[in-house]
């Protein structure tokens, strides 16, 4: 069991999203940083589809009521585990009664906590993701609150093997001698610009606006949330006056309402949109995008659709290699600390 001592600003249970129901107007939800969740799940011996706890800007304080394997991936919240700095991007075995205290995110906006065995949260329409507005999924259909108690499922064999492979370090927790390559994470998250493809109505914007879109800097407004980032900066002008017919949107769609201020649609976006799409953020940069905070600047660089898919395939291969690497380390360390 995990007891919520302090919930933090917005902590919700999220998996890869509720897919297959957008035709009914049911949004996907799901984790904002899909890379962080997948890696966190691999680190604790889970399947990648397992849900974790996504935390935002101000993290929660949690108490573990039994020994369990956890991993925290994503932004650095200066987390303390029983007053000792808690390492990120590693499997960590926490002891019964241990307290994880996450503070403010120094860099980045969101982190994911995965637990070996997974959270015992019933799936609603094939997903454990929280749909706050409809009050379904996740923990009682809402963000976590003080005194909530989350049950954890029995650890898988992979989780038990990971526990066996850990090095005893300090008094309060055990962790691995290895972690996900900092260099790799740096390349993935420390991007000056987000790569963007031309959107379906790209050509309907004025030449000046398109120039500004690529060259100027935007800023995430305070109204930015899991539904979308509202951007302030150059006001984008459309040269066509007719309204377009509403059509499907996707994670990363950059639409421009009539006020000319673009919105990047994210995990809690609606299924259909009626605003012209100037661009589409490339999937490979969703993790970097998920880590932007309100108030931070954002710039775009152009990428072709075929390049975006090429990089996405490369990313998937990297992730597969990371998964094999983790499994290899676990096997190596199983008969004692490596």
């Amino acid at each position: 069991m995990i007891r919520i001592i302090e919930p933090g600003l917005l902590s919700t249970v999220q998996d890869e999203g509720r897919h297959g129901f957008q035709q009914y107007g049911i949004i996907t939800n799901g984790v904002m940083d899909p890379f962080a969740l997948r890696i966190a799940n691999y680190l604790v011996g889970n399947e990648e589809k397992e849900a974790g706890i996504e935390v935002t800007l101000t993290g929660p304080t949690l108490q573990f009521e039994e020994q369990m394997l956890i991993a925290v991936c994503g932004a650095d919240f200066s987390a303390l585990l029983d007053d000792e700095p808690m390492p990120l991007w590693r499997p960590v075995l926490v002891q019964k009664g241990s307290i994880l205290h996450m503070k403010f995110s120094k860099k980045g906006c969101r982190a994911v906590i995965a637990v070996g065995g997974g959270l015992e949260i019933p799936a609603v329409m094939n997903s454990q993701s929280t749909y706050v507005r409809a009050g379904i999924g996740g923990f009682k259909g809402r963000a976590l609150e003080k005194e909530d108690v989350l049950n954890v499922r029995t650890p898988s064999i992979q989780t038990q093997q990971t526990i066996k492979s850990l090095t005893k370090k300090g008094k309060t927790y055990w962790t691995s001698a290895w972690s996900i390559s900092a260099l790799y994470l740096n390349n993935l998250y420390e991007r000056e610009t987000v790569r963007v493809m031309e959107g379906r109505q790209y050509d309907e914007f004025s030449e000046d606006s398109l120039k500004e879109f690529w060259e100027e800097s935007f800023k995430l407004s305070p109204q930015s949330d899991r539904m979308g980032y509202r951007l302030t900066g150059p006001v984008l002008e459309r040269t066509v006056s007719e309204e377009m017919l509403s059509e499907a949107v996707s994670f990363g769609t950059i639409q421009v309402p009539s006020d000319g201020e673009p919105i990047i649609l994210l995990a809690d976006r609606q299924t259909i949109g009626g605003y012209p799409k100037i661009g589409q953020a490339a999937s490979v940069d969703f993790p970097a995008l998920a880590q932007k905070k309100p108030g931070e600047p954002l710039r775009f660089t152009k990428i072709s659709h075929s390049e975006a898919q090429k990089f996405l395939i490369e990313r998937e291969r990297d992730i597969r290699e990371l998964k094999w690497g983790i499994e290899f380390k676990v096997r190596l360390g199983q008969n004692g600390p490596a």
Binding site: H19, Q22, Q23, L245, E247, A248, I313, E316
Partner: peptide, 24 residues
Amino acid sequence: IEVVPAFASIAVHYDIRKLLTCQS
């Protein structure tokens, strides 16, 4: 993954993980 019909269009969301071996 899923099909999302609108007034006069349909979006088909696909799973890149099932298509890793193709060129495009």
